[in-house]
Structures are given as structure tokens and as C-alpha cells.
Simulated scan of single mutants.
Amino acid sequence: MRLFRLDASIFPDTSASAELADRVEAEWRSAHPAGEVTRRHLGTDPLPADAWALATAARHTPEGDRTQEQRDALALATELAGELRDADAAIVAVPLYNYGVSQHFKTWVDLAIAGADPATPLLKEKPAVLITTIGGGYGPGAPREGWDHSTPYLRRVLADLWQADLTVIKRELTLADSTPGMENLRDLAAQQHREALAAAEEAGRTLAKAAKLERV
């Protein structure tokens, strides 16, 4: 049984998304103690920013005419696509940065697409948990309602393009405890934190069960 886990926080030691991903993984490991986990941490080990362009160019260049840089980039893209294709289940933990996904996460997505094909469902019918964490509040009635341009994109890639059987855990207000002006939101933030932790544990149990059924 193989689990793929991707983290994208640039603050790994205090990551709210990693905390939730850890809960999901712990439940999966409890059910599959001999399972393999493939990890990518884009915050601590980012992919080369120019690799996507090189891999894409390689796809349109005869093999004998490719540069070494193009061959290396295409090999990396193929490896990333393979990690998703070979997994039985996936955890993807992605914080919101500057109202969208970070450039290092977008590089990973683009490279994985380049390593297969834009139409290839790399997670077809596989159970996956998306964890997304947000410092502020962007829900209905919030001053910045609609400014979350990350979550719709993540759903589009994971559920629609790669066809994962997706569960989404979204925690907002992660900065309430440390940000002046958000004091009145701290009780709500604490409640959302508790709910997200409970949802992560439940998602982990579901992920483990669904992955086992999928393999059978």
C-alpha cells in the first residue's frame, strides 16, 4: 500500500497545514503499518523554477536534439507524474499565499502534467485528502469574500483534471492568535481549529479504508 504526501508550507516548523496532514497520515499508518510513504516537501525542497519550461520544450523537441537540461527536466517531470500514478492514496497540504497557490506548488503541478499528459488522470478514482489553510477569513460576509483563488484551483486540478476521489479540509483564521486586529476572531478560530483536527482524523480513517478497498 502506497501513500503519496505533499506539503507546501514555507514555515514547516509551525505549519498549520502540516499539523492536519500529520493527523490524516497517522490514521492511514495505523491501518497500514507496513505501507510506503512517498513525500515531497516543496517548502523545504523546491523544484527548479525553470524545469517546467525545459520539460515542455523537450516534449516538442526530437529526442536526439534535446539539451541535457531538457532531458533532466523531462526526467524530473516523469518522476513526479509517476509518484502520483503509483500511489494508492494521497494527502496534499497547501496553504494559501497571497490569495492563491504559491509558485513552488504551481511548478509541481505543471511539471506533473508535463510528465504525463494534460488529459491524464493521475489520481483516477483514488482517495485523496486536500488540506488547505488560510490565515484570514474569506467566507460569506467577510470583507475579503471571494479572495481565496487557491481552493477552486486545487479542486480543479485534483478532482477534475486528475480525477481523485477528493475530500477537502479547509481551516481559516490560522493567524488570529498572532495578528493585531483579529482578537475578536480568536474564539471562532479555535473552534475552526478543533473542527479541522477532527475532520482530519475522520478523513484519515476514510482514506485508509478507501485505499484498501481500491487495492482489493
Rank of each mutant, 00 (worst) to 15 (best):
K126E: 11
G135H: 00
K209S: 08
S102W: 06
D22H: 08
R2N: 14
E36L: 05
Q70F: 15
E172H: 07
D148Q: 09
Y138D: 09
A90Q: 11
P118F: 15
D22Q: 15
T107Y: 09
A208S: 09
L161R: 12
T56A: 13
G82L: 10
V94E: 02
S17I: 02
L84A: 02
I134Q: 14
M1P: 12
D177A: 15
S30M: 06
A114P: 15
Q68W: 03
A89M: 14
L173F: 02
P48H: 09
A176M: 05
S17K: 13
E69K: 14
H32C: 01
L130S: 07
D177C: 00
W28P: 10
N98A: 13
P46G: 04
L185N: 12
I134T: 08
N184K: 14
G146R: 02
G137T: 02
S102Q: 02
I10Q: 12
M182P: 03
A208P: 08
W147K: 11
E145W: 14
P118T: 08
F4Y: 06
L161A: 15
L158G: 03
L213S: 00
Q191C: 01
P140R: 04
K106R: 12
P140E: 06
G100Q: 13
A203M: 03
A198Q: 13
A8G: 01
T133A: 05
V216L: 07
R66D: 11
W108L: 10
G82V: 11
D72N: 07
G135K: 08
T14N: 09
G100T: 13
R205M: 04
M1F: 04
E201Q: 10
A26P: 01
V94C: 02
V94D: 04
G204H: 00
V109S: 06
H104P: 05
G136E: 10
A208C: 13
T206M: 11
R2E: 02
S102C: 04
A128E: 04
R155F: 07
I10G: 03
D45F: 02
F4H: 13
L84G: 08
A128W: 04
T120F: 07
P48L: 07
A55L: 10
L111F: 01
R29E: 01
P33K: 06
A211L: 02
D7R: 04
R215D: 00
S9M: 01
T174V: 09
A21G: 06
G146E: 09
L161I: 12
R155M: 01
P118S: 09
R71D: 03
R144A: 04
A196P: 11
L84P: 11
I113G: 08
L207A: 01
L111W: 09
R85G: 00
A196M: 06
I131A: 05
R171M: 14
G181M: 12
R29M: 06
K212T: 15
D86N: 14
H60M: 12
